[in-house]
Amino acid sequence: MHTVLIIDDSEINLTLIKALVLKLGDCDPVLFDNPVKAFEWCKANVPDLVIVDYMMPDMDGLQFIAAFRALHGRNEIPVLMITANDQKDVRYEALMGGANDFLNKPIDRAEFSARSRNMLSLRTGQKYLADRASHLEAEVAARTADIRDREKELIFRISRAAEFRDPETGAHIQRMAYYSQVVARNLGLDGKQQRLILEAAPMHDVGKIGIPDYILLKPGKLTHDEFEIMKGHARLGHELLAGSSSETISAGAEIAISHHEKYDGSGYPHQLAGKSIPLFGRIVAVADVFDALTSERPYKKAWSLEDAVVFLEEGRGKHFDPMCVEAFLAGWDDVIKIRQRFQDEIAPQL
């Protein structure tokens, strides 16, 4: 059903146009003999076609069209203006002001029907395109969300695959990822960056997939040579993840290669120092070490929270970016909640 707004100060014209609109079929005419009241109606209602007389008291047709077009979302609505044939100057002005077409006085049914139908077809096309655009937009958003969910799941599973080869557990990667998000939030990073680090941090140790079992699973202390091989997991992780078109995987590559760098330049693999270490690497360094210290492993007992905090504090400016330690400790209540939420499970057996 099309809503057709008719504005004319002459009752006889209103009645005539209403009768003609009803003859078009599938139309609901809304009548106003006062353009100011019609304009008020337009603020809350969107007609499919406007038929407006030119000469009216208080607000003429040109003024009405200008005001109507200025309302949000009314720019495309077809407007037919009723004028006499001899009013060429008015017609030019109306066209410039946003009228789409004209109806001649006296009104002729054949002309009226043809012009009105044309305008209503235009409106139908506009609505179809708008609906289609909005439908497509929703569909793209739904598909994108699907892809993102799958990407997140794959990232988590790849990260778990690496963790399966390690005494660490799935709960470790979840805790350290959420700790990283806490640090990012307290550093003032925006919501998008916070989500990005949450999703990318689990990939920090994915390069361990390429480390031989005799080193990765060795219960005792690693020899110098073994440790050198172990350090290679940072590069391996980067090689595995770098060059992806996914923003999350690319962030994972950056974290993989930078999370063992130390603020004073004594870390690996590139001995980067200070702000030369990517921010996500500096954040993950704090989150990963804290969780490693406070988790029980086959070769060590879990540290107390207090001891782990002392370790972080003592590592400010040496191992860790002082700002990241501050941000971590500022989110202490969240850290405790995360620890409670993601408890260690029994290590999976392959």
Partner: peptide, 15 residues
């Protein structure tokens, strides 16, 4: 002009 619509004509005359 009125598409041979007597009904509309009578209505207009009345008005």
């Amino acid at each position: 002009r009125l598409g041979d619509d007597e009904e509309i004509l009578l209505m207009m005359i009345d008005m």
